[in-house]
Amino acid sequence: MGQKVELACIIDDDKIYVNLVKKIIEIKKLSENLLIYKNGKEALDYFKDIMENATDEDKLPDIIFLDLNMPVMDGWEFLNEFIKIKNSLNKKITLYVVSSSIDPRDLERAKSFNLVTDYLIKPIELKKFEKIFEKTAA
């Protein structure tokens, strides 16, 4: 494995899940660094801050794992806001929606967003994680 993802971002309010994913990323050395936000608002604030202050692109993640059901600002609201600022962010960001919802309507809706690369249903297997990171790093 030559290349490695520099910065990954997880937006999810399930602490246990975040903990476990963090462990996986550590064990498998999938990403150098990790950003963790427990709802869409916190993540959005971070992105807006970078955009407004034109700070380092390094601080933008290569990959985002976005949960749907979260308090304050859920995944859908985040997507709607993120579309507006995405083009001003000078970096290619891969975004995956990750949810335990198997409701086909959620899947349809997620795929209707161009910026959503795929809809992943929890639990995600270790191998799948590795593949996704490899693909993003390449």
Binding site: I16, L20, V21, K23, D103, P123, L126
Partner: peptide
Amino acid sequence: AHIVSHHLRSHSSNLSLIVELLRE
């Protein structure tokens, strides 16, 4: 049904993640 599926699944999926991690 949606609630059951969604909210029980989130826990069960965490459990399977833990099992995978245990193996690793």
